[in-house]
Amino acid sequence: MHAAPVPFDPALAAVLDALPRGEGDAASPGTVAAIRASVANGPAPSVAESVGDRGIDVEERSVPGPDGAPPLEVTVLRPRRHTPPVPGLFSIHGGGMISGDRHQDVPRLADLVEELGVVAVSVEYRLAPEHPDPAPVEDCYAGVRWMWRHAAELGVDPDRIAVMGGSAGGGLAAGVALLARDRQGPPLAGQLLLCPMLDDLNTTVSSHQYDGRGTWQRDANLLAWQALLGDRAGDPSAEVSPYAAPARALDLSGLPPAFVEAGSAELFRDEDVAYASRIWAAGGQAELHIWQGAFHGFDVFAPDHEITRAALAARRSWLRRVLGL
């Protein structure tokens, strides 16, 4: 018998109850198409609305993808009133690696560009199941490699680039950090992993506690991993790349400092805690935050909640420290 779920914070529970069907209950649709439709109808504003009249220049670029793959579309956000070179953030969107697009995180990135004076690049990667592993993580790695190689053109300090993402984007960011280490690629300054999707096995307590509860539920997660990995998903004896499912990595040494965040009331909680703990066990740096009663993606759906304010402050503090701001 699995443990009873950790209760949602009362105010956050009210937010969940008020969400339109298909947002607060995003896992109920049993197909990739339904999940994509649910994400597309979510709360993200347009790029123009996100940037508004702030001192940020936005540029859409097409850059080289992995060898033999199509070019990547990226969105670049630059602050106007900062003298380059400045630190860089390479952002990877969420959506279970089966949905979403590079523009959905522009609100989060615009805030960071404005407040910290960094350049942000958000990447459009190929989605499963049409493009299963290794396409998504290889696209993301090609994107951060492009950012590093073109740092001078972008006004970025090549030694102060952090990779970041939420949910699937957090898992892909962790995979990119592993790839950069193993391929002697860009010397990343940090990895900002927000409720990252790391473990295809789905055997933790929290992965069962949020079966039918919250914004990203167990059945959607199982579907997403199967779309990415096929029949290998969830099979502990199958050969699964640690770049696709970083929880499978045998060696977490030599990685850039990690910021790992999750809610106490979401299915990724335990795999995220385990990942941070394994980084410490390997002698690495990790900062772990588990927010009381918070559901998956709480900061997007409840931007005015006190937990969101605390989480945003913690992220900014960590970025200032690892990027030397």
Score class of each variant (00 low, 15 high):
Asp272Cys: 12
Gly230Trp: 13
Thr75Ala: 06
Gln217Ile: 11
Leu252Phe: 09
Arg269Ser: 06
Val260His: 01
Ala313Thr: 11
Leu312Thr: 07
Glu271Met: 03
Val273Ser: 10
Leu229Lys: 06
Asp182Asn: 07
Pro129Val: 10
Arg320Asp: 07
Gly96Ala: 04
Asn221Met: 13
Pro29Asn: 08
Trp280Ala: 02
Asp200Trp: 03
Ala69Pro: 05
Ala168Val: 03
Val74Trp: 07
Gly171Ser: 08
Gly171Gln: 06
Gly166Ala: 14
Cys195Ala: 13
Glu153Ser: 10
Arg269Cys: 08
Gln285Ile: 02
Val322Met: 04
Arg321Ala: 05
Val86Gly: 04
Pro196Val: 03
Arg218Phe: 15
Pro186Phe: 14
Arg36Trp: 14
Ala4Met: 11
Gly117Thr: 01
Ser38Asp: 11
Asp299Pro: 04
Ala40Thr: 05
Val163Ile: 10
Ser317Glu: 13
Trp146Val: 10
Asp17Ser: 12
Ala26Arg: 15
Glu306Gly: 03
Leu72Phe: 04
Gly185Trp: 09
His296Tyr: 07
Arg126Gln: 12
Ala282His: 14
Val205Glu: 13
Arg315Cys: 00
Gly297Glu: 11
Gly22Trp: 13
Thr203Pro: 00
Ala233Ser: 15
Pro29Glu: 11
Arg218Lys: 14
Ala135Ile: 10
Glu59Lys: 04
Pro129Ala: 08
Ile290Gln: 09
Ala276His: 01
Ser206Leu: 03
Met147His: 09
Ile279Lys: 01
Arg149Phe: 00
Asp235Ser: 13
Gly165Ser: 07
Thr75Gly: 04
Asp200Pro: 04
Gly324Phe: 05
Arg102Pro: 12
Glu130Ala: 15
Gly96Met: 02
Val176Met: 00
Leu72Trp: 03
Leu288Thr: 02
Trp146Tyr: 08
Leu288Met: 10
Asp270Arg: 04
Pro85His: 01
Val32Ala: 09
Gly117His: 02
Arg21Thr: 15
Ala245Ile: 04
Leu323Val: 05
Pro187Asp: 15
Tyr210Gly: 06
Pro246Arg: 06
Ala27Arg: 13
Ser207Leu: 05
Ala177Met: 02
Gly22Asp: 13
Ser122Asn: 07
Ala120Met: 07
Thr204Phe: 01
Ala227Trp: 12
Asp231Leu: 13
Gly234His: 14
Glu124Ile: 02
Ala281Glu: 14
Leu109Glu: 02
Leu201Ile: 00
Val15Ala: 09
Pro84Lys: 08
Phe295Gln: 08
Ala276Tyr: 01
Gly100Leu: 08
Asp17His: 08
Arg181Lys: 10
Ser167Ile: 10
Ile92Val: 03
Phe259Glu: 14
Ser264Ile: 08
Thr308Ile: 07
Gly263Ile: 13
Trp216Pro: 10
Ala265Pro: 08
Gly190Gln: 12
Ser237Leu: 15
Ala274Arg: 14
Phe90Trp: 09
Leu154Ala: 08
Pro5Thr: 09
Phe8Asn: 12
Leu172His: 01
Glu60Thr: 12
Pro87Arg: 01
Leu222Ala: 15
Val300Met: 13
Val119Lys: 06
Leu112Phe: 02
Glu73His: 07
